[in-house]
């Protein structure tokens, strides 16, 4: 008989396979199709912005944890990688690197580590970084290089506004919807990603593929993306039905801007979304309503980032509102 002492920990004595890094790297894999599309349309610029965003986020997490918080570094868990990728996906491909450095610092320091790090941040760190940049550098954040297939030189790219921006400006000037349609890319181009915009948001197709992968891997459930996107379709559909001369169609709202990226990848962030399915539905509907309100009535052409951040803030209340009903209390 062995003389060594036995382990006597409490049950359960077995553990499921899934770990936090597996979930994080799963999200990273799901972001790959969109990254590939953006490299195809925006070339070297997309690669440069993505690499620097990821590197800066990892670096700031490491430095802050080591020298300020004095805790063990957690850069290996994949969460800073996701923040970097998502931050890059929310930026134009010609974004200056020094501004990117400031954005990454805002995302990691203000968005994540000031609250204690992974799991404690109420707001999605990548969105904190994006909104910070939007406030600081509105010009650079809203002029987008137009997509050009396989253009591997970022110097000669032509810049323009996004479809959402064009439409909003035109409607303000009282132009007809029929005329506006001639100014923006067609629906198929919008679906595939051949349109101006942040480097990760342009291809609805690639983002949906990534979302399906995350559903299959059980990283996300359908509740947030479907309720978010569904609400946008219904709300814009109602407005469009009331007056199709003044409002763009639901399909336009569906395929433009950061809706797909936001609904599939940003709003579903586990840390900053509600705990129950019911809560996630409420959260998704809230995101959808705020997005449409900001897009149509607000000063900015795009409202996805603000909508998600605002809904992040009310997650604790949603959690109270949507408590599960314990077994035996029905």
């Amino acid at each position: 008989m062995s003389k060594e002492l036995l382990t006597i920990s409490l049950s359960p004595h077995i553990k499921g396979e899934e770990t936090t890094p597996q979930i994080m790297y799963g999200v990273a894999i799901a972001l790959l199709p969109a990254l590939i599309v953006s490299i195809i349309f925006f070339g070297l610029g997309a690669i440069k912005v993505t690499l620097f965003a990821v590197a800066f986020c990892l670096l700031f997490e490491f430095l802050i944890q080591k020298f300020i918080m004095k805790v063990e570094s957690s850069i290996g868990d994949g969460s800073a990688l996701i923040t970097g990728l998502l931050l890059a996906f929310n930026l134009p491909s010609n974004f200056p690197i020094w501004m990117l450095l400031i954005g990454a610092l805002a995302a990691m320091a203000i968005g994540k580590l000031s609250f204690g790090g992974l799991g404690n941040n109420p707001f999605n760190p990548a969105l904190v970084g994006r909104v910070f940049l939007l406030i600081c550098f509105p010009v650079q954040m809203t002029s987008w290089p137009l997509p050009k297939l396989f253009s591997f030189s970022s110097l000669d790219s032509v810049t323009g506004a996004t479809a959402l921006g064009v439409a909003k400006e035109a409607i303000k000037q009282g132009q007809s919807i029929a005329h506006i349609k001639t100014l923006i890319p067609g629906n198929l181009d919008l679906f595939l990603g051949q349109a101006g915009g942040s480097l990760g948001e342009v291809s609805a197709l690639a983002l949906i593929l990534g979302g399906l992968y995350m559903l299959y891997k059980k990283i996300i459930t359908w509740h947030i993306p479907v309720s978010f996107i569904g609400t946008v379709i219904i709300f814009t559909g109602i407005l469009w039905a009331i007056n199709c001369e003044q409002y763009m169609s639901p399909l336009f709202h569906l395929l433009t801007g950061g809706l797909m990226l936001g609904a599939i990848f940003m709003a579903t962030d586990m840390v900053t979304s509600p705990m129950t399915k019911k809560g996630q539905l409420i959260f998704g509907v809230g995101c959808g309503l705020l997005t449409v309100i900001i897009r149509i009535f607000g000063a900015y052409p795009e409202g996805v980032s603000f909508a998600i951040l605002l809904m992040n803030a009310v997650v604790p209340l949603i959690n109270i509102l949507s408590k599960p009903k314990p077994f035996g209390t029905n």
Binding site: S74, L118, G119, M270, T272, M275, P324
Partner: peptide
């Protein structure tokens, strides 16, 4: 295995047969 921070994935809520949190 070593414990890491809760990422609020809500998987514990999903699997609880007594529907607790």
């Amino acid at each position: 295995k070593k414990e890491s921070p809760c990422i609020r994935c809500a998987k514990c809520v999903t699997v609880c047969p007594m529907v607790l949190e």
